[in-house]
Amino acid sequence: MLRVQFETRLTNFILKTDIVAENKILVLFGPSGSGKSTILKMIAGLAMPQNGLIKLNGRILFSSADRIKVKPQFRNIGFVPQDYALFPHLTVKDNVGYGIVRKINPGDYESRILQMLETVRIAHLKDRFPKQLSGGEAQRVALARALITEPALLLLDEPLSALDADLKLELQEELYGLQKQWNIPFVLVTHDYREVERLEAGRARLTMADEVHKFTFSETDRPKVNTLKL
């Protein structure tokens, strides 16, 4: 379970967050520039809030009161940024293998990568470079690269916005399936309400009152179960 509760001053507003993510998909939605991506970065440890608490499965990752700031490399959190950020100089296989240690047994390393690639159905792309991939393929590589490290939480920044309508549906369904399979919280950020409607997910809606942007569960957006309509 992820608990995020913090308050931080950004350039134009104060960002307040109070969310809990259980082992399902949690969608944060609000317009662009409202601070959604910043929240993900703070959960991943790539940016620090001014004060608050971030706790994952009982482990404190950030606490302003106790002066705890766990570095991103020790947080065990998968992060799929908006543009996927695949390493352009590495093949798909090496991209996916980046986060796992090449152990004494190189065969094991190889087979783990191949198994992961098969899970997201891109095994045939293993020797390609990121430049040779389509948007949907790149998305899958980014997912595989994050999930193979067995993270305790997966963060996805606008994972579907760059894809065309058909692909959007397909990947949406796949995200749903992967979440079931991994059984960890997926925290997903989007500015498009329609993307959210189809996902069986909890939601945190953004409320903006002048100077303060607040992410919290409002009454109407309590985590609820939608049937997946495709």
Partner: peptide, 22 residues
Amino acid sequence: DLNLEQVARTLGAGEARVLRTI
């Protein structure tokens, strides 16, 4: 792209490894 370095960190790479591999 700084995003690449940041993703590498979330994948468990320390500063030295980020510099050497990315």
